[in-house]
Design a protein around this nucleic acid. Structure first.
Length: 322
DNA sequence: ATGGTTTTTACTGCGTC
DNA sequence: GACGCGGTAAAAACCAT
């Protein structure tokens, strides 16, 4: 319990500061006399010189007067607080389950049936409503992340289709809208051959990596999405342009990757790492050198990985066994 | 949970500018 | 002396079982 003394000190200091602030405010700026609060006129005036320091204050009280408890109940207009925990802030209609009318009398069987139908419909509209809202928010999220990552229109389309399907199949309960939206975008980007790495998604999403990978796996499994491993080549153009490299380098890198694929060297290796290594190797072959760390930076891959991969790529290219 | 594979981290030595 | 590069060992991350 060594922290209790320090905690006491902190709270004492806070107390002192607040008190001093208050006293500073309670003194008339003209004559240093004490101020009094005149609630009826909504003013703060100096007791000594009569200077009005503040006026037009907000009266926090009710604007009506109640003379007994019954009147207070009638005049008070305050209801249940709204809450953000529910999609509609708790303002939607809810039909009670008891078959009683407003006075507590039992309903006739005809009326009971009617109420049952009303309940059913009310519930239908309400859930449809909530899905609409859900979708709206998710699509906004997808849009935001997509433009942050510079992803084109067709990716957003695909992502929203995936999200809609997830929503239809009731995959949302227990998962965050954010998470599913991010996962949908990730899957969509890969499906249309414009992939972004998990790191990149992670950077623009509000959910952490763990949740992202978990929900991604989940929706891929549940929706039986066909997502092939990303093609290393699809990363090449983006990285080369970020490094201001020429078309020649880009072409060379693609060739290296094609060749490596035909040799069956790419399975099990990370596509991003392969792309980075191919670009590095291509930059050497075309005398437009970039450093390993430069490539590693834009691709988010360690230099070691680039080294290992690019040796393999060059070996495969020249026919020398590894 | 476990084991195998891949990637990353951290460190070292070498050559060059 | 800083920088780019190569290599290694151990840790961490990932994936299928």
């Amino acid at each position: 319990m060594s922290e209790s003394p320090s905690r006491t000190r902190i709270s004492e200091r806070a107390e002192n500061e607040r008190v001093s602030e208050e006293t500073a405010e309670d003194v008339c700026p003209e004559c240093d006399g004490n101020l009094i609060n005149d609630a009826e006129h909504g003013e703060t005036v100096c007791k000594e010189c009569g200077l009005v320091v503040e006026e037009d204050e907000i009266d926090p009280g009710p604007e009506w007067r109640a003379f007994d408890a019954g009147e207070r109940d009638q005049k008070s207009r305050v209801g249940a607080p709204t809450t953000n925990m529910m999609h509609d802030k708790g303002l939607s209609t809810n039909i009670g389950w008891q078959n009683k009318d407003g006075y507590g009398n039992a309903l006739s069987s005809r009326q009971r049936e009617k109420m049952q139908r009303l309940r059913t419909w009310n519930e239908r509209f309400r859930t449809r409503d909530s899905k609409e809202r859900n979708l709206k928010q998710a699509l906004g999220e997808i849009d935001r992340m997509a433009s942050a990552l510079g992803l084109p229109e067709n990716v957003r389309e695909t992502a929203s289709v995936i999200y809609r399907r997830a929503l239809e199949e009731d995959l949302l309960p227990g998962r965050s809208i954010e998470g599913v939206a991010t996962a949908s975008l990730y899957a969509a980007a890969r499906q249309v051959g414009n992939p972004r790495s998990l790191d990149e998604l992670d950077a623009v999403s509000r959910v952490d990596r763990m949740e992202l990978t978990r929900t991604y796996r989940y929706i891929v499994r549940e929706l039986e999405l066909e997502v092939q491993p990303a093609d290393p080549k699809s990363y090449v153009p983006r990285f080369t342009s970020e490094l201001n490299l020429t078309e020649e380098v880009e072409r060379r890198a693609r060739e290296l990757l094609d060749h490596a694929r035909s040799e069956g060297m790419i399975s099990g290796k990370s596509p991003v790492g392969l792309a980075a290594a191919a670009i590095y190797a291509a930059s050497l072959l075309t005398n437009q050198k970039v450093t390993q760390s430069q490539v590693g930076d834009v691709a988010d891959v360690s230099e070691v990985t680039i080294r290992n991969r690019y040796h393999e790529l060059l070996d495969a290219d020249t026919g020398v066994p590894a």
